[in-house]
Design a protein around this nucleic acid. Structure first.
Length: 281
DNA sequence: GCTGCATGATGAA
DNA sequence: TCATCCTGCAGCA
């Protein structure tokens, strides 16, 4: 169940065995793609790109394989003679002489030429990739202040892939906690320094998740929890999945609320909800 | 063995 | 806002 940082790590692993290599065998098991499998044999993989949670495998003939893991997709990378022991159903198999990249379970997969890719709604709709090196915290701050986004609640904004692509349900909770902001807040009502803190937290927490394979909690707190003998499940997040437990920063009890249909966790001490002040125009 | 939930996203109303 | 799709698995008998 991946968010942008986990997808990028999968892409890194695939990149190591496929980029620059020629495909000698290709499997595409979804019915609408099956006829195209043979046509990819002999092409070279030119790059593995990601945009948010979308993974793009580019081939030397100009086509691109779009895949989205949704909740259950998973890429396996292995030596070609050592396929993984799994009962999952194979959706894509890309094989070089020596290695394989196998996409299991995912169901949102398309093979697109350059024109089709440019017009492909799931890609065209995405905002900037949260892990892009070209995205600075100032860019994020500027985006928060854009009219399309400034009036919306942070809770809604931070799951919207058109705002920033790659943030998912756990990053949302973790970013808002790190910024000390309640999900009901709206960018328009935040101070300049609060916008700055939020923009920085957006990038810092996402980059931390990438570097650590999904751990967003702060290092000193992790160390303390590890000393208590707790497992990753218990020290991975600062607030996500911790309803009823004490906040590492202030000791207040972490709360779980529903935003739309998704759960969101927050610390009422660190992320106080302020009364909405109505301003006359 | 069964049930419900899940780090996701879309389209209709 | 709701219903729906996709699949795997933790938790519980």
């Amino acid at each position: 169940m991946p968010e942008g940082p986990e997808i990028r790590r999968e892409a890194d692993r695939i990149e190591r065995v496929l980029t620059g290599r020629t495909l000698v065998h290709v499997e595409l098991t979804l019915p609408h793609l099956q006829p195209f499998a043979t046509s990819l044999i002999g092409t070279t993989v030119t790059s593995i790109d990601t945009h948010g949670k979308a993974l793009l495998t580019r081939f030397s003939d100009g086509r691109t394989l779009y895949s989205h893991n949704q909740l259950y997709g998973k890429w396996y990378v292995c030596r070609r003679d050592r396929p993984p022991a799994t009962r999952r159903s194979l959706r894509v198999g890309l094989h070089t002489e020596t290695h394989s990249a196998l996409l299991m379970s995912a169901s949102t997969i398309e093979l697109l030429d350059a024109d089709a890719l440019a017009a492909f709604p799931p890609i065209a709709r995405l905002g900037p990739d949260v892990l892009s090196a070209a995205l600075s915290w100032r860019d994020v701050a500027a985006r928060l202040n854009e009219p399309d986004f400034a009036g919306r609640s942070l809770g809604a904004l931070y799951l919207d892939q058109h705002f920033i692509a790659g943030i998912g349900n756990y990053l949302r909770s973790e970013i808002l906690f790190a910024a000390g902001l309640h999900p009901a807040e709206r960018p328009r009502l935040l101070s300049r320094s609060e916008i700055g803190a939020l923009a920085r937290a957006t990038l810092v927490i996402s980059q931390r998740a990438y570097a650590t394979a999904g751990v967003t909690n702060r290092e000193p707190w992790i160390a303390r929890l590890k000393r208590q003998g707790l497992t990753r499940r218990h020290w991975r997040f600062a607030v996500f999945d911790r309803a009823g437990a004490p906040c590492h920063a202030c000791g207040a009890t972490i709360e779980r609320i529903e935003v739309g249909t998704r759960r969101l966790y927050l610390c009422p001490g660190c992320q106080p909800s302020r009364p909405v002040v109505s301003r006359p125009k």
